[in-house]
């Protein structure tokens, strides 16, 4: 464990906490893409298949349980909670995430480290996570008003993967034969997708103006 990975995990945890707080306290999910939340639930479900078979550490298991519980409860809230689901703008959140899932599944079947069910599922979860934010970014472009909780959520979500990239560089430099191209490339693609959001978010924060994404 290194500081980059720990801060990356904490930033990731913060992002789901911010989102849950927003939904739970003000009972609103305005501006949040259900498609992205469903993709994240899929990411954790396919990545943590070995949660009860391969014990890594107490920290690892607890964090996996937290990510699974929060992502599925956010999806539940947005779909079934009688008040929250009223603030979900389904007309705007129309990204067909099946067009993301299928290519990721095909790619995971072709490009993976080992052709076993667990490994292919794990690789699939990496590819899905890389593109999971797209429906959310599309929704942000459409709904002009980005409230700052949503802005903070997306920012933290992007920052966690950027910290992971530092973690991979650190581990590559300190651990022999720590080479994992699939993880590195999908992590890099994921972070690059946030690049323009980061640019506008930091600018709006610097000029202390409301976050506006260009049309």
């Amino acid at each position: 464990m290194n500081i980059f990975r720990l801060s990356g995990d904490m930033t990731h945890l913060m992002s789901v906490i911010v989102l849950l707080l927003k939904i739970h306290t003000i009972k609103s999910c305005a501006g949040i893409s259900l498609k992205t939340q469903e993709l994240y639930a899929l990411v954790f479900a396919t990545r943590y298949l070995d949660i009860f078979t391969d014990f890594v550490s107490v920290y690892n298991t607890i964090m996996k349980l937290i990510f699974l519980a929060t992502s599925f409860s956010i999806v539940w809230y947005m779909r079934h909670h009688k008040i929250v689901r009223r603030s979900y703008d389904k007309e705007q959140d129309t990204f067909r995430h099946l067009f993301l899932i299928l290519p990721c599944l095909i790619l995971a079947l072709v490009v993976n480290e080992k052709f076993t069910f667990k490994e292919v599922m794990w690789t699939f979860s990496l590819y899905v996570e890389a593109v999971a934010i797209l429906p959310q970014l599309v929704l942000l472009q459409r709904t002009k008003n980005i409230d700052n909780l949503t802005g903070q959520y997306v920012f933290l979500l992007g920052a966690y993967r950027a910290l992971y990239i530092l973690n991979w560089i650190y581990r590559y430099l300190t651990e022999k034969h720590f080479v994992h191209w699939i993880t590195w490339i999908s992590g890099l693609v994921q972070t690059l997708l946030y690049a323009d959001f980061f640019y506008y978010y930091i600018n709006s924060w610097k000029n202390n103006v409301r976050l506006q994404l260009p049309a």
């Binding site: 990975r5 995990d9 990731h12 070995d50 391969d54 890594v56 550490s57 690892n60 964090m63 996996k64 990510f67 794990w122 992971y164 973690n167 651990e175 034969h177 720590f178 994992h180 993880t183």
Partner: peptide, 10 residues
């Protein structure tokens, strides 16, 4: 074994 060590990430 790098495999298991690597899968220690979330």
């Amino acid at each position: 074994e790098t495999e298991s060590s690597f899968k220690d990430e979330l």
